[in-house]
Nucleic acid binder design. Sequence first.
DNA 1: GCCAACGTTGGC
DNA 2: GCCAACGTTGGC
Length: 156
Amino acid sequence: MPASEKKFWLLKSEPDCYSIDDLQRDGQTFWCGVRNYQARNFMRDHMKVGDGVLYYHSSVEPPSVAGLAEVCSEPYPDFTALNPDDDHFDPKHTPDNPIWVMVDVRFTKKFDQPITLAEIKATPGLETMVLTQRGSRLSVQPVTATEWEIVTAMRE
DNA sequence: GCCAACGTTGGC
DNA sequence: GCCAACGTTGGC
């Protein structure tokens, strides 16, 4: 794909739930369970195979970008929303009328040293990252090409 | 564990 | 369609 079409994202995960180590072990996973419309819209309307992913660990000390991954499927209906026994069940979501989507994500690399949120906040050029904005809670965030360059260069 | 920020819900 | 109440997120 032309480099100009490649997009970049930050995906948040609580490592107690699914960590970069789990992704490294599995190689690939379903990015399911997104139940926020803004995050859903980013996935549904803008995610493409090959997009770069900053894999972020939230709700741990220290919160940090733990590694890199790659989007490896087009968005498709999130089947966990169909399962009444699933935590992410949503009765409004049906096979005929899917509301929620997921993508598949493939492991790329794990940083030897995670890039902490504090480090990101202290890095020139990253002041306007969605992640560093006050009250930013989106679990799927767009990352600019410039931000991607700066962040990934911090561990090369 | 606290609590600010934010999204969602539901009564009106 | 407004907005108060409520639930959740997530850094600290």
